[in-house]
Write a protein that binds this DNA or RNA. Structure first.
Length: 491
RNA sequence: CGGGGUGUAGCGUAGCCCGGUUAUCGCGCCACGUUUGGGACGUGGAGGCCGCAGGUUCGAAUCCUGCCACCCCGACCA
């Protein structure tokens, strides 16, 4: 089998790419920077979607759908927004093709040029706010809490499966509120939803914080972020929630009648997570044998592999295993019984390890005789033999234990990679040798931030929400600072 | 967009300098048989516009020109 995976220590980036492809999550397509998400990968994304969607609805949001194409003129209404996205927009200029008269093939029909070009959405603020103008008249129409599941396109220079693709799937929430305070509260609430999802479902610890001015979303007054730490010591921005102030309301003229009967602009937020979370999931837990999936997001939670010499033995195993799969399914556990005779057990073991299935049951003639079963867990690779009578109960317990273990492991790994430094020499040394988050004082200026970035490639990932107020001096400029911020090299 | 590199079967490749039989090998795939407690083996078989277009030549995977795609390093990147 040519399924041998590059080791993380040899080449982390290569390991990641190989793993995504070999575990059947996704592959590159014939279109530059755009991937095909394969069924196994898409099944994980669907699990993520289902849970996030439930959480959004629980917090009062409704789903809607807006157009893929946005008139160019909409785009230029909010100045900083257009500045942020202009360089990576795909543009539709024609609406018809025709046969090439001089030869074979098909060409753009120049007669079918659009009066106004259409932009393939890189994000939907502009088209959504154009609708909101019509939807919002009064404080009684507020708050307006809408989410959209969609694809967006950003013409990225350099792409990587899931982490940065030219087209990606995401959700984008867009809300409108009466007051500034309410909008800020919404922004923070959704950051909280993202953090809860990351930790409870992806088993991926995150740090909640805010972005510095230079790292903010184009058009936002404040960006709240969740930042995760990957196994190679690089940070990954896993989700963002933006307080947009009245910028978009002013740009799209969305006014409402207040409780006092006056006209005012509404306050806005937007927030999103994308298929990038798939990359985060892979890099948080997986090892040199392949994917490691948290039980709550694993498409297959338990796989059963029969071991047999004869058809008679297989029949007996089929018979014995049927009630076990039935019982597991009744308990809401997804189980796959793989009795294909085209592959040997050893091949299947390796295959399901590569695919990150949390638990594996192997049952053979010996087990039939002794009423036992072999149970192996993917996270620790430990095996145990136990009685078939307690199997289902054991599986239920282990799925919870594995979920928890993955989180704890990722948490202690992450915590070990937060280093406080007090000098720039120390800063550079830690960054080069250990990586991870560097907690350091910063004077609050974009100039210093930029200088550090150009000297070290590290950026300020966030100003943690729980940062203590402590007097200190900036690690680069020596100017006074009131709290530490987190620097890291990032994806 | 700059600098470097690579395009040969589903994947990985040999051949290219120095043009000349039927384009090499491995994995995978298909059929049959033997196998099955950690990635099995045998026998047989299918699969190629040698990235695309043009040129040189009796003859091009091989030489020349142009184009396209991808990879690496920069620049860029809520």
């Amino acid at each position: 089998m040519g399924k041998k995976l590059t080791k993380r220590a040899e080449d982390y980036s290569k390991w990641y790419n190989e793993l995504v492809v070999k575990a059947d999550l996704a592959e590159n397509s014939g279109v530059r920077g755009m991937m095909v998400i394969k069924p196994y990968g898409y099944a994980i994304w669907e699990k993520m979607q289902a849970e996030l969607d439930r959480m959004f609805k629980e917090t009062g949001h409704e789903n809607a759908y807006f157009p893929l194409l946005i008139p160019k003129s909409y785009f230029s209404k909010e100045a900083s927004h257009v500045a942020g996205f202009a360089k990576e927009c795909a543009v539709v200029t024609h609406y018809r093709l025709k046969n090439d008269e001089s030869g074979k093939g098909i060409i753009v029909d120049e007669k079918a040029k659009l009066e106004e070009e259409l932009i393939i959405r890189p994000t939907s603020e502009t088209i959504i706010w154009d609708s909101y103008r019509k939807w919002i008249q009064s404080y009684r129409d507020l708050p307006l809490l809408i989410n959209q599941w969609a694809n967006v396109m950003r013409w990225e220079m350099r792409t990587r499966l899931f982490l940065r693709t030219a087209e990606f799937l995401w959700q984008e929430g867009h809300t409108a509120h009466e007051t500034k305070a309410e909008a800020i509260e919404e922004t923070q609430k959704m950051q909280g939803v993202y953090a809860e999802f990351s930790e409870n479902f992806m088993a991926m610890p995150v740090i909640k914080g805010t972005k510095t001015e230079s790292e903010r979303f184009a058009g936002a007054l404040d960006t709240y972020t969740i930042e995760a730490m990957m196994q190679d010591g690089k940070a990954l921005q896993a989700g963002t929630s933006h307080f947009l102030g009245q910028n978009f309301a002013k740009a799209f003229d969305v006014k409402y009648t207040t409780r006092e009967g006056k006209q005012d602009y509404v306050w806005a937020t937007s927030w999103g997570v994308s298929t990038r979370l798939m990359g985060a999931l892979v890099m948080s837990h997986s090892d040199d044998f392949g994917l490691v999936l948290p039980p709550k997001l694993a498409p297959i939670q338990v796989v059963i592999v029969p071991i047999y010499r004869s058809d008679e033995q297989l029949d007996l195993l089929n018979e014995r295993i049927a009630p076990i799969t039935k019982e597991l399914k009744e308990k809401g556990i997804s189980v796959k019984y793989d009795n294909r005779n085209t592959y040997k057990p050893g091949w299947k073991f390796a295959e399901y390890e590569l695919k990150g299935v949390p638990l594996r049951i192997a049952m053979g003639p010996r087990d039939l005789e002794n009423n036992t079963v072999e149970l192996a867990r993917r996270d620790t690779l430990e095996k145990e033999n136990l009685s078939q009578d307690v199997l289902v109960e054991r599986i239920e317990g282990l799925l919870i234990e594995i979920q928890d273990n993955l989180f704890q492991k990722a948490l202690s790994f992450r915590n070990d990679l937060i280093t406080e430094v007090n000098s720039f020499d120390e800063f550079k040394e830690i960054l080069e040798t250990k990586g991870g988050f560097i907690s350091a004082h910063w004077d609050g200026t974009s100039e210093t931030e930029e200088k550090i970035k150009s000297l070290t490639k590290a950026t300020i990932r966030c100003i943690p929400l729980d940062a203590e107020q402590v007097e200190g001096s900036c690690v680069l400029s020596g100017n006074p600072s009131s709290k530490r911020v987190l620097f890291a090299k990032a994806y």
